[in-house]
């Protein structure tokens, strides 16, 4: 971020306590704290004591775990300045391919490996279109989104279900299901793993050379290229990372849900990017944001979804909330010095 004169001048005089609090609340951290406090407060008044039971906490964290894993990998592509809108469809494809292979008597581990390779293949197509040809990332991955949704449906129909589960391949893998449902006191194991992943990613981005290169490419690609970084390779691998995360997420959902519905991950890209943007990432410029913020942003959405669930509201209300939240967040980002449109 560019240093403006007021920031330089701010070293000269000491800020009062009130000013310091005001300043810290105007950043992404402030947005998160205020947002969380508002939603939990509303929930406490509206839903009552149930908000704070350990079971409710387990529900929130369980809802959060898999999107968090997908989001952390997708955050690499945001950081490198490319948006991958196809992650939601990639989750569905991964689930359907994995379930298709497993129901076809392929060993689970082999099936998982093949699924990851398939998803990486489509991630590579994204990479070729965006990096080699220089296509607009949003338009290209929107095409990939629709294409992969179609492909997931095609594969799903090769294993037609019966009755109400016609649009899903049902499959129960006991080991995987136990793994996704396991918990240590009120913490789902999957959530603990996701949280570890957040810390590791935070470390990579903050302290390693590779992480800094990704940020450099997203921040100013021309400067990064002149500094001798392989900008195209970094962008390409960041797209592969987001495809990899989506493939892992899809397989975990198969374990958790006991099947692969075709509609899995619909609008998930939207929720995840809204969460990441609450946490300080930007889908229009790379190089900003950190995984901890992304985690807290996803927590806000999970708490809100929990509130909607507990009150038995229309689940579409959550969509509307996320849509408007995204606009407010982007507006705040512009106020903080993000790129304004004209």
């Amino acid at each position: 971020m560019a240093t403006n004169p007021t920031q330089l001048a701010s070293h000269d005089h000491k800020l009062s306590k009130f000013e310091m609090i005001k300043k810290s609340l105007s950043g992404p951290g402030g947005t998160i704290v205020i947002g969380l406090a508002l939603i939990i407060g509303t929930s406490a008044i509206w839903v009552g004591k149930m908000t704070f039971t350990s079971f409710n906490l387990y529900l929130v964290l369980g809802y959060l775990a898999i999107p968090l894993i997908i989001g952390i990998f997708a955050s690499f592509s945001l950081l490198a300045g490319v948006v991958d809108l196809s992650i939601g469809a990639m989750v569905a494809l991964s689930a359907v391919v994995f379930a298709y292979l497993c129901t076809g008597n392929v060993n689970e581990w082999l099936a998982a490996a093949i699924t990851i390779l398939v998803c990486l293949g489509f991630g590579a197509i994204n990479g070729v279109a965006i990096v080699v040809f220089g296509a607009n990332p949003i338009a290209a991955t929107l095409g990939m989104l629709v294409g992969l949704r179609g492909l997931a449906r095609i594969i799903s129909q090769m294993r037609p279900g019966t009755g109400s589960s016609q649009d899903a391949i049902s499959l129960m893998i006991t080991g995987l299901n136990n793994f996704t449902e396991a918990q240590i006191s009120f913490m789902p194991v999957l959530f603990i793993i996701a949280l570890l992943l957040v810390f590791v990613t935070q470390g990579i981005i903050s302290f390693t050379r590779g992480g800094r290169h990704v940020r450099a490419v997203g921040g100013d690609i021309v400067a990064a290229r002149r500094a001798g970084l392989a900008t195209e390779r970094i962008k390409f691998f960041s797209l592969l990372a987001s495809a990899f995360g989506a493939s892992i997420g899809g397989m975990l959902y198969v374990g958790k849900l006991g099947g692969a519905p075709v509609t899995l991950g619909t609008n998930m890209e939207f929720t995840i990017y809204a969460a990441l943007m609450i946490g300080g990432y930007s889908i229009l410029r790379g190089g900003v944001g950190n995984p901890m913020g992304g985690f807290l942003g996803l927590l806000i959405i999970a708490v809100f979804a929990n509130l909607v669930d507990n009150k038995g509201l229309d689940t579409r209300a959550a969509d509307i909330f996320v849509g408007f939240l995204l606009l407010i967040i982007v507006f705040l980002d512009i106020r903080r010095g993000g790129d304004a449109f004209e």
Partner: peptide
């Protein structure tokens, strides 16, 4: 059901050519 699959990839190819 093949329709969306094919349309998606036509879009990717079209934006690549455009760029």
């Amino acid at each position: 059901i093949w329709e969306t699959f094919i349309q998606g990839f036509i879009l990717i190819i079209a934006v690549s050519i455009d760029a």
